[in-house]
């Protein structure tokens, strides 16, 4: 199994936390990570809510899996961008960094940086292809997530609200 995929599988569970959205608004983030395909892939359900009304701002369903050459890629549906495929890009050993370009020419970069066993920094940044990193067109969400539920095989995921 791909070494990074093995690391990501260890992040299984439900992660929640507060985030900044487009550097100004406050948002709530939730990321649910589950091993699938007998451990050969990982699913991630990522959602961002505005905290006042708990309206979904942005949601993604993703499967992270090895391509035939062993490289990690994602298969995703995003409420903002539609169907998206991202590829792993080089980063520090324990960091999952993914990038890709949407059909509409937007470069999307997702970074998941574990702080310790139960904390993770997650950022998703997007900008038009060609726009610089300091461009006003850069948008995204960034925040610190805490693991609130550890995934257990064979058992339904407990509802976080009931804990």
């Amino acid at each position: 199994m791909n070494r990074m995929l093995r690391s990501v599988a260890r992040w299984a569970g439900v992660w929640t936390g507060q985030a900044s959205f487009n550097e100004t608004a406050t948002a709530l983030m939730r990321n649910e990570i589950c091993p699938i395909f007998e451990g050969r892939a990982v699913s991630m359900d990522f959602e961002v809510y505005e905290p006042a009304g708990m309206q979904l701002v942005y949601g993604v369903r993703t499967v992270l899996a090895p391509d035939l050459d062993g490289s990690l890629k994602t298969l995703s549906f995003s409420t903002r961008f539609g169907l998206v495929q991202l590829e792993q890009t080089p980063d520090d050993e324990d960091v999952l960094a993914l990038t890709g370009v949407t059909d509409e020419g937007v470069k999307l970069t997702v970074t998941m940086l574990p702080q310790d066993r139960d904390h993770m920094q997650l950022s998703a940044i997007w900008r038009p292809v060609g726009a610089g990193a300091a461009s006003e067109e850069v948008q995204g969400v960034n925040g610190l997530l805490r693991r609130v539920t550890i995934w257990k095989p064979g058992a339904p995921m407990p509802d976080v609200a009931r804990r």
Binding site: F37, A41, D67, L75, S76, Q85
Partner: peptide
């Protein structure tokens, strides 16, 4: 249709 199959990739 965005698909992944373990026998043909993405």
């Amino acid at each position: 249709n965005n698909i992944y199959g373990n026998y043909f990739g993405f």
